[in-house]
Amino acid sequence: MGVTLYHYPISAPSRGALLAAKVVGVDVDVQIVDLFKKEQLKAEFIKINPQHTVPTLVDGDVVIWDSHAIAAYLASTYAKDKSLYPSDPKERAVIDQRLYFDCGTLHPRIRTICFPVLFRGEDQIYDEHKTPLEEALGFLDVFLEGNDFVAGNKLTIADCSLVATISGIAAVGWNISPYANVSAWVSRCSLAIPGYAEANQEGAEAFGKAVRSKLAPGQL
């Protein structure tokens, strides 16, 4: 039995998990869960993941969700290239810190802006939400100072998660050019991650388009 990934392309965490599968080089059977049709709330899906979020991964008898836990699991279980998630405690800790930064800081600050627009009829972006996002982009820019990738000079699973998040907000039209390290790193990831265009860019653009189409003019 293969590995199944419940996925929705506009979701950044979901694309992050798919990118991790790509860099690890494991084939996953992608099952689409359409969040606009609320398919995640169907009883069959809640039975698999009571938190009803995408991405969710099923591998034999184990169900894993949260994109970051999925990425770590895929790398630990299937990666030939151990540098994607090294076992050295210090190297791994830096990657973990970046993953927690994505989960607890960067992605939530984007979600605060975009979720109400996509699902609650909001059409404005408020200054009180812009500032925290700019701050988080600034942190990422500092993490990248002197590094090709977010946890050092090699591509790791932390790049997969963070680039999925950043490419979404960039596709919305957020100006990331003031963050020179971030901009350069996004291009670097797009070349370094196999299948990036299909696995990430298409969904990021669909996300950007969906958010833009619901925003009042002049918000960005």
């Binding site: 938190q51 184990v62 894993i64 969700w65 949260d66 970051h68 836990a69 999925i70 770590a72 699991y73 630990s76 927690y100 989960c103 607890g104 992605h107 939530p108």
Partner: peptide, 14 residues
């Protein structure tokens, strides 16, 4: 380990 990780991310993110 993935189950422990999932709970840790659940705590932080949710």
């Amino acid at each position: 380990r993935a189950v422990v990780d999932q709970r840790l991310y659940f705590d932080l993110g949710t």
